[in-house]
């Protein structure tokens, strides 16, 4: 396995203290909402499912895929988590992964945790889930919806950093430069992520459709429509 361990999460000192504090508060309140909503979702089976999705995201992050020569990327997992366990538990899964990475692997600064959670767990998961639901409603097959939602969620999450840099980053890089610097590699990472998400989700949907949250809501909706029309 690869020996060079390099961080991709925001470290301490990149964004100034007041903005880091504001985003810590934003992340904390978003997580509080997720905890409340997740209680409704977390039935017997969802508990180990959530742990496994988190472990899976964590484990898949150990495997890198090449993006550009010399640059490799790994999964963020927001869209995958949202499709499999729903947006609330999904955001909590990604949060857990980020917290454990900061504490156990020193990846991502402790004071930047709010920034990282906001980008990857909140923005990434929300964007991925909203898009998947919209695409499924437009009768796009699950594989395609999962792929597109992952690509977009990764790029949108990376733009969260651009907002944070505009508010509290030093060094006077222009916002346009930071935005393209973040969007380029993350588009490529997003394509890798999209492939992994699409394949994983379609494998799970084929063997155990009852485990896919995004399908479950659609199925429930169909059942309701049948009830109404009957």
């Amino acid at each position: 396995m690869n020996n060079d361990v390099v961080a991709m999460h925001i470290s301490n000192g990149i964004i100034d203290a007041p903005v880091s504090g504001i985003f810590a508060a934003i992340a904390a309140s978003a997580i509080a909402v997720c905890v409340l909503r997740a209680r409704a979702d977390l039935d017997d089976r969802l508990a180990p499912m959530a742990g496994l999705v988190a472990a899976f995201i964590f484990a898949v992050q150990m495997l890198n895929f090449p993006v550009l020569p010399g640059v490799s990327g790994h999964l963020l997992g927001g869209a995958l988590a949202a499709i499999l366990v729903g947006p609330w538990v999904g955001a909590l899964c990604v949060t857990v992964v980020l917290v454990v990475q900061a504490l156990v692997f020193a990846d991502g600064g402790l004071t930047a945790l709010g920034l990282n959670v906001t980008n990857m767990a909140v923005i990434g998961t929300a964007a991925g889930y909203l898009l998947v639901v919209a695409l499924l409603r437009a009768r796009v097959p699950l594989v395609g919806a999962a792929f597109v939602a992952s690509v977009v969620s990764v790029v949108v999450a990376s733009q969260g950093f651009v907002l944070q840099y505009a508010l509290g980053g030093g060094g006077g890089l222009s916002i346009g430069a930071v935005a393209s610097l973040m969007a380029g590699p993350h588009l490529l990472i997003g394509i890798g992520e999209g492939l992994i998400t699409a394949v994983t989700v379609s494998a799970v949907a084929k063997a155990r459709p009852d485990l896919v949250y995004a399908l479950r809501t659609r199925r429930q909706r169909q059942q309701q429509e049948e009830l109404v029309s009957a």
Partner: peptide, 14 residues
């Protein structure tokens, strides 16, 4: 929050 602790516990175990 308990949910986060539970998810983290399962995560490390798996």
């Amino acid at each position: 929050p308990q949910i986060l602790v539970q998810i983290a516990t399962f995560m490390l175990r798996y």
